[in-house]
């Protein structure tokens, strides 16, 4: 104790107390909050209780645009028949509830936790079916063929999402987002439901096993090292040209200035 007493008047003591306080609050908060708790496996047959909770959450968070019965209004489409996968994709990526009406909903930290999201999904699903949230085995990349995944990705996705999923611009302010933060489940759901400007790639177009190959390609590529050095964003020659001019010509102009510098004559 005398060790602390001896140091309590040091300038750093104040910061240490604040830091300890923050940690304490954080620990206590984490113990009570439900945010970020491990995802509960979605039971295929949603209980009627979950549906009821989902309806409650829907009315609170979504009904102002989608209508009290999810029938759609002037500002939001009908959700009858869109399926649980669509709800899970939109809510878990934070796109819904929408922040503001613009060309395209943006990815942001999710407002509702996994259990709440699944509850709303169960409610929407109960209104008219539609694609379900894929299970863990459906999105597992265990033993997937990334080579085939790359070919499928290049042929089907790269024209909007770029060759490694770094994203790209679309028309009228829309864009294909970067796939850097997407979870395997979200990628699967996006293919299944075709959110925003994206087309639907159903199981006839791209089989479930091919979907797993593509997910494997996307997730593996984004963590794959760059053998040639810094990746420069993996967006192609645009950043290369920028680096060539600024880093290359810039550095050489500086050295040219140095080489041709005159010795200063002192007064």
């Amino acid at each position: 104790m005398s060790w602390i007493i001896a140091r309590r008047r040091r300038p750093v003591a104040g910061y240490a107390v604040v830091l300890l306080g923050l940690i304490a609050v954080g620990v206590v908060y984490a113990a009570f909050t439900t945010q970020g708790s491990p995802a509960s496996a979605s039971s295929p047959a949603a209980s009627s209780r979950e549906t009821a909770v989902g309806r409650q959450l829907f009315v609170q968070n979504c009904s102002s645009c989608h209508g009290l019965l999810a029938q759609g209004t002037n500002t939001g489409p009908s959700l009858i028949g869109v399926g649980a996968a669509a709800v899970d994709f939109q809510v878990s990526t934070g796109r819904m509830p929408l922040k503001e009406i613009e060309a395209q909903a943006q990815r942001k930290p999710p407002v509702l936790n996994t259990a709440q999201t699944h509850a709303i999904a169960a409610y929407i699903s109960s209104l008219g079916g539609g694609p379900a949230i894929p299970g863990a085995s459906q999105v597992s990349t265990q033993g997937a063929d990334t080579g085939l995944g790359q070919q499928l990705f290049t042929s089907n996705c790269a024209q909007c999402h770029n060759f490694v999923g770094a994203g790209g611009a679309l028309t009228q302010g829309k864009y294909a987002p970067a796939l850097t933060a997407s979870t395997p489940t979200q990628i699967y759901e996006a293919m299944l439901t075709g959110p925003e400007a994206m087309p639907v790639f159903n199981d006839t177009t791209i089989t479930p096993s091919e979907k797993r190959d593509m997910i494997a390609y996307v997730t593996e590529t984004r963590s794959a090292p760059n053998p040639g050095g810094f990746s420069l964003g993996r967006v192609g020659p645009v950043t290369e040209g920028l680096v060539g001019w600024i880093g290359g010509i810039g550095a050489l102009v500086l050295s040219a200035l140095w080489i041709t510098a005159k010795r200063r004559v002192h007064e």
Binding site: T154, S155, A158, Q159, N162, V235, G236, P237, V238, E240
Partner: peptide
């Protein structure tokens, strides 16, 4: 190369 495919951000060198 695959004649049916094309990536977003396909640019030539500067």
């Amino acid at each position: 190369y695959n004649p049916v495919a094309m990536s977003a951000g396909s640019q030539p060198d500067f």
